[in-house]
Structure formats: structure tokens, C-alpha cells
Design a binder for these strands. Structure first.
Length: 416
DNA sequence: TCTGGGGTCCTAGGACCC
DNA sequence: TCTGGGGTCCTAGGACCC
């Protein structure tokens, strides 16, 4: 049996841990540029605030209902997530961290409601975060069990452990809520008369293969109780890393875009170094405002290659600049840009190209020093001049909460 | 006025190899 | 009139996830 722990309304719950007076109050967390709603407390959901809704569209609703609004604070959420995962690791031999707020667990020993309740209480007590736990024979079924646990149980725990129970649940489970069935597939399935998870489980496999590719077959297998997705306990290296942002306003100013691209590039390099990997390829893209339907859309992008795989900020920024010069067109106003590095390998396996001209040993030392200083002094304290100084492209985060657990100056003060 | 960001996997088709 | 067979790698686009 596999278990799935899922933190309830994770970002909203993180904010609430440090603001207990917001208990039972509507809370929302906004995306990077205070743009869209990406997390809601149950009270906010009850007000009809939808996932992904642009914040400006619900301004009056927010004011009228005194909804507490927060900008994303990934330093805080990442740290709380880490704490939750560490607790799970003390309780289980095999834990797969699936996302910032979810983990699969090996429940092959003692798969019981009591054990799950114990885990749930422990996480609540140690971190303040409420979680739901679903237990079932396959990952796809644990997703369903978890959904039931969250929505319909008092204890926040649910187990799917026999065929009759499984079929009964699947029979009333909408196909679009099944893990791996998105909007497109759901539409296709409904047109074919498949509306529930049970109907999908019993559907013709050949038809599924033809219409949903092998992904569909895997989902069907899992619904039948046969494991296809195994527990992945050691994490494999990242295949791509990206940094992309929308700008505060559309611009065709080369220098502003250049500053942004260089910042994204060195951020990608930093992420590569943190993962101990290097990349062979770099993609730079620009985008016009996709919401403006009356203007011409332009989405240029280009991929360039390194002869030797690298995670060096200078090299990656230089390459990004080269790419930008090729795709930039001053007749367009760009709203968004990004840098993606891919084709990665572990840094220990890098082979030096015959035409290498850089003293890589020296560069690695330099990067190490820069990273060490920035770790202590704060992000980008030492940076490339090409990143610029004004950050004109950057948007505001007006509702940012303190980094209670990662910045010493932000730590809570308690009056006794 | 204001609309996020970061990932993975699969498939078809093209280019190439022997 | 007739024009092989067996592969790999890469890319773009599509679908999905959180």
C-alpha cells in the first residue's frame, strides 16, 4: 500500500501558522507579481474565489469580505515544506517528495487509519500545518483516497483497501478529477461517454491507447489496482531549469530587457550549481502580451549550445546575451521573457571540449566565493554588472509576509 | 491599469548512420 | 516496370502535474 500526504491549502496554511488570528478567516496567496490567486483557505474557496483568478478581478470581493491577501513567500513555504518532509522521513523508510506540499509514503507495513491519524497529528503539532492522508494500492488511487480524506472525513484520513470499496468510490468520481486526466482528455472522454473513473477503468484499452497514448493505459492500470508508478525514493537530476518572469509593463527597451535576461541567466546558473549539475544548452525567449488580442503577437526564441557543459554565471550570461541579440526586435513590445537551461549532466561528469579556452578550475572557485558571500549577505549582493541595478522590469510584491523561519531579523517576538 | 512560474513525459517527423 | 532494412538522435508541439 502507498500513502499520500498532502498539505491542505499549503501556502495559505503557511501564512496562517504565524498569524493565528486568521484562523477561520478567508486567506489568499497571490502569484509572483501579485497577479493571480494560487492558494486559498477553505473560507476563501467558500466565497467563490477560483484558482488562478487574476487578483484585479476580485478586488471588490476581497474588500467586502475582508480577505487577507499575501504575496508569495517561497522562502517561507520551502522551509515549512522541508520541515514537514523531515518529519515524514523519521516515520517512514521510504518517502518520495513529490511536490512542495505532497509526499508519497511506503505504507506496506501497518497501513491503518490509526497510523495515518498519528502521522497527521504529529505534523500538525510540530509545524502547525494541517494535512490529509490517503492510502491505497497505487499512486493514482491514493490521489483519490486523499481527495476523499480532505473533503469528506473528520479525521482527514481515508483508506481504499478493497475492490468493492474502490469501485463504489470510482463510480461517483468524475473522470476530470483523476490524476493525469486534464482538460483535453476529460473533454475527449466525455464525448466518448466516459464520465466517471469507474467507466474509464472498464473502458476498452485499445481505444484508450489510440486516444490518450500510453499515459492513458498507465492510468487505467493504476485504477485497476496494478502499480505502474513506483515510489521514487532517490531523486534523479533535473532535466531542465528555467527562470521566467512577466515584466511590470510592456517594453521594447533593449537595456531593460538585457538586464532582465542577464538576471535570469545568472539565476539559472545559480540553480544549476545548487543541484551540482551543468548544462549543454540554453534557450532564451521573449513574449509579447498574450492578453492583447488586437496587437500582433511575437514569440521569438532560440537555443544555443555550449561546447563544454557549464554552470558558470559569466559563461551562461554571455551566451544569453548572444541569444537575445539574435531574437530581439525593437518593433515589438515585450511583456515576458525567460531563460531555460537544459541537456544537463552531473558536474563531475563534464568533459572539457577540445576548444576550451576558460580556466575552469579558477572559475569554479570564483563562483563558489560569490555564492558563499551571497549566502551570508543576501541574494545578488555580488552580481554581474550586466544584470543592471534598477530592476525596472520587476514587479511589486506588496503583501509580502516576513521570512519567519529563514531570516533572523524576521523571527517572531512574543510578549509574555 | 492589473492576467504566475517551474517542471515532466509522449509522439511524430526529419535528419542522419550503416 | 522495378528502388532495402534497421536503427538513433533531435526537435516541436501537445498533454499533463504542482
Amino acid at each position: 500500500m502507498i500513502g499520500l500526504v498532502d498539505c491542505n491549502n499549503f501556502y495559505a496554511s503557511c501564512e496562517r501558522v504565524f498569524k493565528p488570528h486568521l484562523k477561520r478567516k478567508p486567506i489568499i496567496v497571490l502569484s509572483n507579481n501579485d497577479g493571480c490567486v494560487i492558494a486559498r483557505s477553505n473560507e476563501a474557496k467558500a466565497l467563490g474565489i477560483k484558482m488562478g483568478e487574476p487578483a484585479f478581478k476580485i478586488k471588490t470581493l476581497i474588500l467586502k469580505n475582508k480577505v487577507s491577501v499575501f504575496s508569495t513567500n517561497f522562502a517561507l513555504y520551502g522551509d515549512i515544506s522541508h520541515r514537514v518532509m523531515e518529519i515524514l522521513k523519521t516515520e517512514f523508510n521510504r518517502v518520495e517528495i513529490y511536490s512542495i506540499d505532497e509526499a508519497f509514503l511506503d505504507f506496506s507495513i501497518s497501513a491503518s487509519i490509526d497510523r495515518a491519524v498519528f502521522i497527521r497529528n504529529k505534523i500538525r503539532q510540530y509545524t502547525g500545518i494541517p494535512v490529509s492522508i490517503g492510502i491505497a494500492p497505487t499512486k493514482t488511487l491514493t490521489k483519490i483516497a486523499n481527495h476523499i480524506a480532505k473533503k469528506y472525513t473528520e479525521k482527514g484520513v481515508f483508506i481504499l483497501n478493497n475492490e468493492i470499496k474502490i469501485n463504489k468510490i470510482l463510480n461517483s468520481y468524475p473522470i476530470e478529477d483523476v490524476w493525469g486526466i486534464g482538460r483535453r482528455y476529460a473533454h475527449k472522454l466525455k464525448q466518448a461517454g466516459i464520465k466517471t473513473a469507474l467507466e474509464f477503468k472498464n473502458a476498452d484499452t485499445t481505444w484508450i491507447r489510440r486516444n490518450l497514448s500510453v499515459d492513458g493505459i498507465h492510468i487505467q492500470m493504476e485504477l485497476k489496482g496494478k502499480q505502474y508508478f513506483n515510489l521514487k525514493t532517490h531523486q534523479s537530476i533535473k532535466k531542465s531549469i528555467s527562470t521566467t518572469r512577466s515584466f511590470s509593463k510592456e517594453t521594447n527597451n533593449y537595456n531593460i530587457i538585457k538586464d532582465a535576461i542577464n538576471t535570469f541567466a545568472s539565476n539559472c546558473a545559480l540553480k544549476l550549481r545548487k543541484e551540482n549539475i551543468c548544462c549543454y544548452k540554453l534557450t532564451v525567449f521573449l513574449m509579447t502580451n498574450t492578453y492583447k488580442t488586437n496587437t500582433k503577437q511575437h514569440y521569438p526564441k532560440i537555443t544555443l549550445l555550449f561546447s563544454t557543459a557549464t554552470n558558470d554565471s559569466l559563461e551562461i550570461s554571455n551566451m544569453a546575451n548572444k541569444a537575445l541579440k539574435i531574437i530581439y526586435n525593437n518593433n515589438c513590445c515585450y511583456k515576458k521573457a525567460g531563460v531555460i537551461v537544459h541537456k544537463t549532466i552531473p558536474d563531475k561528469e563534464v568533459q572539457i571540449s577540445l576548444f576550451n579556452e576558460i580556466n575552469r578550475k579558477k572559475r569554479r572557485k570564483l563562483m563558489y566565493s560569490v555564492d558563499s558571500i551571497n549566502m551570508i549577505m543576501g541574494k545578488d549582493k555580488v552580481r554581474l554588472a550586466s544584470q543592471g541595478f534598477d530592476k525596472e522590469w520587476q514587479k511589486k510584491q506588496e503583501q509580502l509576509s516576513p521570512c519567519y523561519t529563514t531570516q533572523i531579523e524576521d523571527i517572531l517576538t512574543i510578549q509574555i
